[in-house]
Amino acid sequence: MPKLTVEDLKHIKAKTATAMALRLGETRATITVHMGTCGIAAGAREVMKALLGEVAAAERPDVRVLAAGCLGTCASEPNVTVAFKGSEPVVYQKMDPAKIRQVVQRHILNGEVLNEFVLGK
């Protein structure tokens, strides 16, 4: 089994060239998935995987996705923090792939906070 070849890289690069050109602009929203042991055991990786697919499909280069450690509220994992530039960050609790897709569609792309998923409300 070979390593990732130069041809594979060219293929990936060609498919993503447009988005990379757009990415030169600034980051407007950052989505952080909390990835401690508690988060991982509760399904944070599946949330991140769904998020990755959704953000990639939206072709929004001003949105960044990050992983971080445990937030300290292990019982409400998987937790995801959405931070828009210039606004207070919003922490969503008990995320799953379906809920994070809603967060991307409604909060990230449409500016609507999903109060029913917000931690501590």
């Binding site: 089994m1 390593k3 993503t16 988005a19 697919g53």
Partner: peptide, 25 residues
């Protein structure tokens, strides 16, 4: 099978690994 992210960063032009679309691919 080997995946080394340094290859992804240094090979022709490099790929930006903070881009969800690139990582998805």
């Amino acid at each position: 099978f080997i995946l080394d992210t340094r290859d992804l960063k240094t090979e022709p032009g490099g790929l930006s690994l903070d881009d969800p679309m690139v990582v998805h691919r």
